[in-house]
């Protein structure tokens, strides 16, 4: 929806946005450029281009720091987790928002209450739990923990999105002969696609970048996630000060997120133009 505004106002608007975006672009560009430098170059010429774009840092993280393996692990595990969270959270949020039964609001609050708990306090108990059921040092165990800790926010956010369209839609669909399940799939999901996409994006980002649980619960290097690899890179920087390599790792970790976001952005655009409610 675009307003018609005076030319000067429009120019001002563009200026503000462009200025802000410029800062973002420059920041990213700086990170990218620095990843092609050597450490010495970094400190002699912080804000200038390197003398040569060497790929040493990237080779280093790919081979030496084995980020290629970790990248693969993350790119498989994280989307699966995100999907599983949706499979669990969307129906739950729907039922907690639109259905009526006893304890509905209590259960909803029960989920929302979890958002306030700092996960770190559950770190050791989770370790012992996973160990007891034999899922320590497995990606499934880690995934179950990720899913469990993401449900609160996901359900809460979906509840917010589900709540904001009229109930008549459900009834209209039922009258049309849909079973509740069908109405769920055909009516609810498309209309709340924005909410679902928002939750997907958020979960993807937060799980992709999460390293503490992944560090403690997974010991086998073969199963390590990228976020832990980057964290290790950054931690070893305390000793080596190898910033440029760290940036190469950061860029590597960033790329899939940008790709994912660009993909999702198209869907958001669709979501934005689709589906006004027909009165």
């Amino acid at each position: 929806m675009e307003f018609r505004v005076k030319k000067t106002a429009k120019v001002l608007c563009y200026l503000v946005l462009i200025l802000w975006c410029l800062i973002v672009i420059l920041s990213l560009a700086w990170i990218l450029i620095t990843s092609f430098k050597t450490n010495r170059e970094l400190y002699q010429e912080i804000w200038k281009l390197p003398s040569s774009f060497n790929l040493d840092n990237y080779k280093k993280i790919w081979d030496l720091y084995d980020l290629s393996q970790f990248f693969l692990n993350s790119i498989i595990v994280v989307p699966i987790n995100v999907i599983l969270i949706l499979v669990l959270a969307v129906p739950a949020a729907f039922v907690l928002t639109r259905a009526e039964f006893r304890f509905r609001s209590h259960i909803l609050s029960f989920f929302i209450f979890g958002m306030g708990i700092p996960v770190i306090i559950a770190l050791f108990p989770m370790y012992f739990l996973l160990s007891d059921i034999g899922l320590l040092n497995t990606l499934s165990g880690l995934s179950l923990v990720y899913i469990a800790t993401s449900l609160s926010f996901s359900i809460f956010m979906l509840h917010g999105f589900f709540g904001s369209y009229p109930v008549e839609l459900d009834e209209a669909a039922t009258i049309d002969g849909c079973t509740p399940f069908q109405s769920f799939i055909k009516v609810v999901l498309p209309l709340s696609s924005t909410g679902i996409i928002t939750v997907t994006i958020f979960n993807f980002i937060s799980i992709w970048n999460e390293y503490m649980l992944a560090l403690i619960f997974i010991r086998d290097e073969a199963k390590r996630l990228l976020s832990v690899g980057i964290y290790a890179l950054q931690a070893s920087m305390q000793y080596t000060g190898d910033w440029v390599t760290l940036f190469a790792g950061v860029v590597l970790a960033l790329l899939p997120l940008i790709v994912f976001f660009v993909l999702m952005a198209d869907r958001i655009m669709d979501g934005l133009t689709v589906g006004a409610v027909k009165g």
Partner: peptide, 26 residues
């Protein structure tokens, strides 16, 4: 997952379990 990602690697063979302070690549 457990099948795909491999189970826990606890084994009783005589091996030295060494956990290192240094991050990989250091």
């Amino acid at each position: 997952f457990p099948l795909a990602a491999g189970g826990s690697s606890e084994s009783d063979e005589e091996a030295l379990e060494f956990w290192c302070y240094w991050d990989k690549g250091h």
